[in-house]
Amino acid sequence: MNMSLFGFFRARNTAPVARERLQVLLAHERAMIGGSDLAAILREEILAVIAKHVAIDQEKVQVKLDRGGSVSTLEIDIEMPALVGAK
């Protein structure tokens, strides 16, 4: 617990945070239940394209997703075998 005076006041106004988190989350979930989770579709297709050219070790793939209000980011980090670049 932050005992500073500033922290004390700031910690109490959490309702606006709740409101914003819900608005962003529900916008995505409503779209998802409608059957179009864009981020998930992109992730699958991008990985499929890469797998056509490179043998991907699933252990070495990192997918990060950040669903935002106006912008979402999909970050795919794939470790490629050394010989791919030397072709």
Binding site: R12, N13, T14, A15, P16, A18, R19, L22
Partner: peptide, 9 residues
């Protein structure tokens, strides 16, 4: 006091 979601929210 901003501690709970309001009706309007």
């Amino acid at each position: 006091r901003g501690e709970m979601l309001k009706v309007e929210d």
